[in-house]
Write a protein that binds this DNA or RNA. Structure first.
Lengths: 292, 292
DNA sequence: TGTTGTTCATAGACGTGGTCTATAGCTCCT
DNA sequence: AGGAGCTATAGACCACGTCTATGAACAACA
């Protein structure tokens, strides 16, 4: 017994409709094809499955037994096909993104909103972590894509730059006297500096910059989140090094102002990172398309 | 989406083994065929189902979803195929027979025993009833075959004679004086006669016989079962009209003796009755073969 | 009792598509 | 560098699934 499973589909419809002719219509086949298929199935089992009469067909005892299994099987396949169609047109599924809190909040949020509105059936899973954590999530297959600061050098990954950000120093009213001046690096160091506590890419970049000019950047305060970085600067606890785009609201309303330096600060690039040579889910590729 | 269900079988094995090569072996195909099949499935859904790597394949997120349905479906089909094989070689199934109590007990019992011993997996359903009841059971499909007294005239039925029986009058010790005599019909009527109460074929036949000779056979006692017919005769309540083969034990041990008449009594034929032009279950045809 | 309209079964022809072989490309391991 | 896995691709072939045409059986109905 090594049947073509296609025969079960024919059997299912013949049993369900009680008519080979009807089954043929349902399957877009001709009646002789169905007749032939049923005969094949019967011969393969050595068991008669249907009584044939002039009004159609009806299941024999054994046919009923077979049907009890095949019906469930066919229904599962139908459900599977419906599910796949739903996944295909993004009525269903999930999208798992890795990134830092601040990037989610200040960069991805509008895209996530738009995506969720457009495809409400897709469940969003946001995993935050540091860049190395995100990379390992990706390699373990726990997320579909990661959003991190560039550069990333990893031959297993494919990274596309998505937006360029500019980090800068900002301060609040307490340092108003610095507002319209241009500071040198060493004069900046006369004031307390607030940096992100974790070894972020941005912190490494600015530390290196100071070093390349022969200075050492030692923060007065280290904080664990971008929000605190902003809040501390507003309250006048020091000068924070933040991403300009993430404080645009505060800059506009004047609760923070940017401190201009006499040297250019390095730009920072955000990249969308996926596994190289691994197929993306439809949801993931749609999301990336949206962000670009 | 109008897939060949055969593709799901390939998908199932590829997912299960995590290798197209292994799946190919399991399905007695070549690896390129499996590769091609999976590709077809993926294209039909517009969804990538597997990650390919140098050690084999693994399911994508969507592939896992599909597998959760298809696995169950395939297992059901396997169970169905096993079940059909069991039905085929009579390891499983049921045999539904209609007939009278007395035929079951005195005629079919040894065959039923033998059949049950040979095929212990087949459930036996014995439905007793009168001949018309048995016929309607058969037409309703509630039994596979009926065992009844002939003749049966019904174009929908096919009846095969299986054994010839002889009805006769028997009496117990009380009527010992009749033992070695030959009675005429009218002298028999001088004694109380015990008949089967229901309008059985045997009763009709003997009544007609008396009528054809100008006598009227009126039973002194009517009883509802063949066992009672025998028991009443043994206790000397009268002369019972029974099937000789059903009282062979009593005749041998001498608790009953046959009354010889000067006219021949009509023989009675037992037939096995099935629906004409309806396929039999394997169990039913095996049983009929056994009885013949 | 023939007629008509169903049903399923059978025969034979056709052509698609599933399967094969051969080969390439890739990764990992020795 | 070579070998041993794995999957992908290309191209050829032929089996088999599907078709059309027809037959046979049966039911309903005039």
């Amino acid at each position: 017994m090594n049947n073509n499973y296609e025969l079960y589909k024919v059997f299912y419809w013949a049993a369900k409709t009680g008519s080979l002719t009807q089954a043929a219509k349902a399957l877009y086949l001709t009646q002789p094809s169905v007749s032939h298929a049923i005969k094949q199935l019967e011969e393969s089992f050595g068991i008669t499955l249907f009584y044939r009469n002039s009004k159609g067909v009806s299941l024999t005892q054994e046919g009923v037994v077979l049907y009890s299994y095949i019906e469930k099987s066919q229904i599962l396949i139908s459900l599977a096909e419906e599910k796949m169609a739903a996944l295909k047109n993004l009525d269903s599924g999930e999208l798992r993104i890795g990134g830092s809190d601040s990037l989610f909040k200040h960069y991805l949020l509008p895209y996530l909103e738009e995506f969720h509105q457009k495809y409400p059936g897709i469940k969003l899973h946001l995993n935050h972590g540091t860049t190395p954590e995100i990379i390992s999530f990706l390699k373990e297959g726990r997320i579909d894509l990661g959003v991190v600061r560039m550069p990333i050098v990893d031959s297993q990954l494919e990274v596309r730059e998505s937006i360029q950000l500019q980090d800068c120093f900002v301060a609040g009213a307490r340092y108003a006297e610095l507002k319209d001046t241009v500071l040198s690096l060493d004069s900046l160091l006369e004031h307390p500096v607030i940096l992100f506590s974790r070894n972020s890419r941005a912190r490494m970049a600015i530390t290196e910059l100071f070093q390349s000019y022969g200075y050492t950047l030692k923060p007065e305060i280290e904080v664990g989140s971008v929000d605190l970085l902003i809040e501390f600067a507003r309250r006048g606890l020091g000068i924070s090094y933040v991403t300009r785009e993430f404080v645009s609201k505060e800059l506009e309303e004047g609760s923070l102002f940017e401190i201009h330096l006499d040297v250019p600060l390095p730009p920072s690039h955000v990249g969308i990172m996926i596994m190289r040579n691994m197929p993306l889910t439809n949801a993931a590729s749609k999301f990336i398309e949206l962000v670009r």
